[in-house]
Design a protein around this nucleic acid. Structure first.
Lengths: 172, 172
DNA sequence: TGAATAGATGACAAACCGATCATATGGTAG
DNA sequence: CTACCATATGATCGGTTTGTCATCTATTCA
């Protein structure tokens, strides 16, 4: 339905620091779709069309997630993609790990190589605490939450106020 | 002196989401050095050697910051780089803006194009609050703070505990 | 004027991410 | 066995950031 692309399509790496990689974003939405299907295999093509994600690229992400044990794929007629474990047991953090997002690697905010509690950069104290909050969110947000959020939004009025934005997905 | 490089040198964009760009990190440390010189012009080469930053790359960053009005450069004998305004008036946020770091651009955590209060992605509420804290830190941390932090660390024992890590640079 | 100094500038390479295309491979159904 | 379907896989491309190199230009000083 939406011919306006719901993703920021950027050729090249283009940066985008301070957000998850595009791949993890795609994965999060895709797994939400798969979870919503309730165990029935879903085609990569279907997901790609529904979420306006480039299909060949999504196929590679799906393949990687299958290799890492988060998805199960089945070729041939009647095949498709299913979750390899319950939607309540796959967190955003798991997706970041599986897709090697840099957010899971401890990095200095300023890029210094030797940055630790013992030898801190000027931003170290802030960044350590801030990063922990990021990881807490990723570890406590599950594919099930994403599916529930998307399902709820589908019943709310689009572009609605509080109904569309108050969700249990939000810690603190 | 340090032949171990204090920066993570990565050829290529390599990602590094969830930190500032390498350029902003270099700029922050470089301006700390310049501020510490107390108004005397500092050579790009000196800064580069002291901080183990690639000199030609630093030269470009310095040039950009000069174009944006944060630094003043002077060629010829006795020349070098000085701050164009007081160290207490140049924030990390200013550096990010001048160097077009993506942190200053509002972006959805999951990369969706249409993400707003009205049409939120599952991470929107968390991310909005989290991002505001990031910006608060950047806006309230100044080149003067960096210079002071580096100066203090120089007097502390290297790799020391609380003395080296407790600093006024940390909000909350 | 000429030499030395120091930043300015442009060309270019490497690495990575996002994306696309074509083709191979593994399954199911008849 | 054959046709068809759906994922698997590899080649390739464009764009961005980071980094290197060579050269130009501006300034100072003798």
């Amino acid at each position: 339905m939406p011919n306006k692309r719901p993703y920021i399509h950027v050729s090249g790496s283009q940066g985008s620091r301070f957000m998850l990689s595009q791949g993890v974003g795609y994965a999060a939405i895709a797994l939400g779709h798969i979870a919503a299907a309730g165990g029935k295999p879903v085609l990569v093509k279907e997901i790609a069309e529904a979420a306006s994600i480039p299909a060949p690229y999504l196929a590679k992400i799906v393949h990687m997630l299958a290799k890492r044990g988060l998805l199960a794929t089945q070729r041939g007629v009647g095949g498709g993609v299913t979750l390899a474990k319950p939607a309540t047991e796959i967190s955003l953090y798991d997706l970041c790990e599986a897709l090697d997002d840099v957010v899971v690697q401890p990095r200095c905010m300023l890029g210094t190589a030797e940055c630790s509690d013992a030898r801190a950069c000027p931003a170290h104290k802030f960044w350590t605490a801030h990063r922990n909050k990021t990881l807490d969110f990723l570890r406590s947000t599950y594919v099930a939450d994403i599916a529930a959020f998307e399902a709820r939004r589908r019943w709310s009025k689009p572009a609605d106020g509080p109904g569309a934005t108050s969700l249990n997905i939000l810690p603190s």
